[in-house]
């Protein structure tokens, strides 16, 4: 057996153990959310509450500068929302150490 944290047999266990906890969710389109996870399903559809959404808006300067061009960060708050699973890239539970 692998020496991993308490009883994670499949990836969804990680999400199950985060129910009613604040999680970090990375979405397609340079968005990320933090919120309290209330429900999820096998598609990774999520219900989150007390959500802060952070949107990175990259405004490329013309020319191929490899240095990050101007990145605007927009934030907004939502009381309760549904996330469609296909937009989810990553879910990270609160670090349990």
């Amino acid at each position: 057996m692998d020496g991993v944290s308490q009883g994670i047999q499949e990836p969804f266990d990680l999400v199950r153990l985060s129910l009613n906890e604040r999680v970090f969710v990375k979405l397609r389109g340079d968005r990320q959310l933090t919120g309290v996870l209330h429900a999820y399903d096998g598609h990774m559809n999520l219900i989150l509450s007390d959500v802060e959404e952070t949107i990175m808006i990259v405004e490329p300067l013309d020319g191929a500068s490899d240095v990050p061009s101007t990145v605007k960060v927009a934030k907004r708050n939502m009381e309760m929302l549904f996330v469609r699973g296909d937009g989810v890239i990553l879910v990270s539970p609160p670090s349990r150490t």
């Binding site: 944290s5 970090f24 670090s95």
Partner: peptide
Amino acid sequence: RYGDAFIRGNN
């Protein structure tokens, strides 16, 4: 950095 991370397989 994340202590734990779930990555959705389609990505």
